[in-house]
Amino acid sequence: MRRADRLFQIVQHLRGGRLTTARDLSETLEVSERTIYRDIADLIGSGVPIDGEAGVGYIMRAGYDVPPLMFSRDEVMAVIAGTRLIERMGGAAMAKAAAEALVKIKAVLPEGLEAQANRVEIHAGPNLMPTERDRHFIDQIEAAIDARLRLALTYADEEARKSTRVIRPLALWLWKNGWCVVSWCELREDFRMFRIDRIEAFTTGDPFREERDKGLPALYAQLAERGIDPNE
């Protein structure tokens, strides 16, 4: 375990509000008590509000926030990969925010870790890459989901037949053929998925209230009954 990770773990253990001995910490982190004493002294010297003494135990005063970005190497790589995925495949606003977040994350990484982060690449097939129009649709639909607003769609199916629907948007899913809005369709009175790239136009409508039989938990139960795993 890197020393930075060990210091983070010590802080996490002491945040519990219980008196914790150096022996307990040394057994948990698999290092010597002398190492724990040295680490705690360094934490106190850096301003972490730890009270206690050797032979008695240590406790952290309430209200201390752990500094951000104290990640392990694997955690950093996961964050970088997820951010790059959203940058390439998310809505326009979300992609922009992901790019800005990536700059901030990389700015505080150690030199060796930054080089590894630069090698993380995300690729996707053409069916999964949204167009600029679809990126903006994703942003607007996401806002409607958050505000629980109905959407009136003009939609073309796989045979280019057009229809108009009023839906209750529930979630955005990256499905097998791209982004879909998962919804309750008021015309069919059932759950439906509409591909973003087949939505020709839409407008936002009036708010809808949550109903147990028309929400995501009910959809998941319906899929389970049919033996469908939405994660596959």
Rank of each mutant, 00 (worst) to 15 (best):
K214T: 09
I167T: 04
R161L: 10
I199N: 01
E158G: 05
P207V: 11
L170I: 07
A160Y: 12
E186R: 06
D157R: 02
E189G: 11
E159S: 12
L219K: 00
R165A: 07
L170K: 05
D157I: 01
R212H: 11
R209D: 15
G215C: 11
L172I: 08
D197Y: 01
K214H: 10
D206P: 07
E186S: 10
C180N: 12
K162H: 14
C185M: 10
P169M: 09
K162G: 08
E211L: 13
E158S: 13
P207W: 07
V182S: 07
P207C: 12
R161D: 11
M193R: 06
G215H: 02
R188C: 02
L172D: 00
E200Q: 12
L187G: 05
G205Y: 06
R212W: 05
L174K: 01
R209G: 15
F202W: 00
R198W: 06
R188P: 02
V166I: 13
K214D: 01
A221Y: 07
S183P: 03
W179R: 03
R188K: 05
R165W: 01
T204F: 02
A221T: 08
W184G: 07
R168Q: 14
F208T: 00
W184S: 01
L174N: 05
E210L: 15
A201L: 09
F194T: 04
A160Q: 14
A224C: 11
G215L: 06
R165I: 10
E186W: 08
L216Y: 06
D206A: 15
D213R: 04
T203A: 11
